[in-house]
Nucleic acid binder design. Structure first.
Lengths: 213, 213
DNA sequence: TACTACTGACCGACCAGCCGGTAAGTAGAA
DNA sequence: TTCTACTTACCGGCTGGTCGGTCAGTAGTA
């Protein structure tokens, strides 16, 4: 990464690039160790800079945390909203594409964000609220819209929308958490592709209006 | 709780009861704040004793954590295993009873354990491994058995078992995490009963062999 | 008096945040 | 091109506060 400490390049000025590098390094370490157990000194080392430099760009550790969450979350959410807006696609199709995109995201550290939020919600109420409003709330509205459209068009049978809302995302959450916690410490193998395939298979069949061969 | 500090009753406590009281208080605080952010001094206060007393029963904070997890997890797991062992019940029935039991557990703080494990797996590999082997592994074996039996009997259609394994528990995990993190910091209401009902409805229909009216 | 469950002041390691100092880079003059 | 004067990104040793863990002492019991 950006950690080439060779004296030559060390002091090069990169004011514009620094914040992004720091956030990236912080995400990596937060994902691995959690917020409390991550030392800013280590974040600095991982970013290839000195500890003091972090404070040129972020006032406190907490603010760095907020930046990490914001940077990781907002672009992806935006993309998902746009996808779902397409009024011509069948609902089942949209769900499949969303699932596909998740599998790609699962390669990166982005999916550690839910783990961090879950762990630290109690200690950072403001951050929790931000996430609840910006991500959870919008995400649920998104799914609700897709399901409602599917029902309206006769793709899906009528169901209790409120109850069904969390069901689409639950397996994705589980896969994300697994990857960044237990999955690292056991031999049990979970194949995300298989899980997602089974999920779509069972969910779409469970939702389907009467006739599905 | 156990925090009656009236000098009269204070010393009359018996050695046998202490560990359980401490573990109970610790679970409450860990659930609320997470492991790192919980001070042993506060645990002691919540248990109505002095800080030093904790060290009469637990060598370190980490060992107390392990005790909390063990005490919260093992009895419930045992009960679930016994339930699933009943060879006469239809598979769908067993899943319904498990779901029902989860809703009861959700009233207590026990469901904060997954949150703690997810958050701290990276920092306590041994604990993560314990949980992976004792809970995740056994839990998955349990579900696998139930699904396999359902398929063998023609209740369920044949599906990819490995992929479908995590799907049953995913919504429960989500409900547990929601209750102990985001749910505390937002107005969004999620009704666990409705989610579980929708889950069983959709899952069982998605799994069902051909004929389901 | 002897015993023991318990206490809480204290210690030391740890780390977020600070700040005086360093040197990379720049611009203007010659 | 080269020198000098200046700016500022960057560094890392230090401090103050926090908290896990200790232990000499207290109070209840027999």
């Amino acid at each position: 990464m950006a950690s080439d400490l060779s004296p030559a390049r060390r002091r090069s000025r990169r004011k514009a690039a620094r914040p992004g590098e720091i956030v990236e390094a912080a995400l990596r370490l937060f994902a691995e160790r959690g917020y409390a157990a991550t030392k800013l000194e280590d974040v600095a080392a991982a970013a290839g800079i000195g500890k003091g430099t972090i404070y040129l760009y972020f006032a406190t550790k907490e603010e760095l945390f907020r930046a990490v969450v914001r940077q990781a979350v907002l672009p992806n959410l935006q993309a998902a909203v746009e996808l779902a807006a397409d009024p011509d696609r069948p609902a089942a199709d949209i769900l499949r594409v969303l699932a596909e995109r998740f599998l790609v995201m699962l390669q990166s550290d982005l999916t550690a964000i839910p783990k961090l939020i879950v762990a630290e919600a109690g200690n950072f109420p403001a951050l929790a609220q931000f996430y609840a409003d910006e991500v959870a709330s919008k995400g649920m509205a998104l799914i609700r819209g897709i399901l409602a459209r599917g029902i309206a068009r006769g793709e899906f049978r009528p169901i209790d929308l409120d109850g069904a809302l969390p069901l689409f995302s639950a397996p994705f959450l589980m896969l994300a958490l697994w990857k960044h916690s237990l999955g690292r410490h056991t031999d049990i193998q979970i194949d995300p592709r298989a899980v997602v395939a089974a999920h779509l298979d069972i969910l779409l069949r469970g939702l389907a209006a009467k006739a599905t061969p």
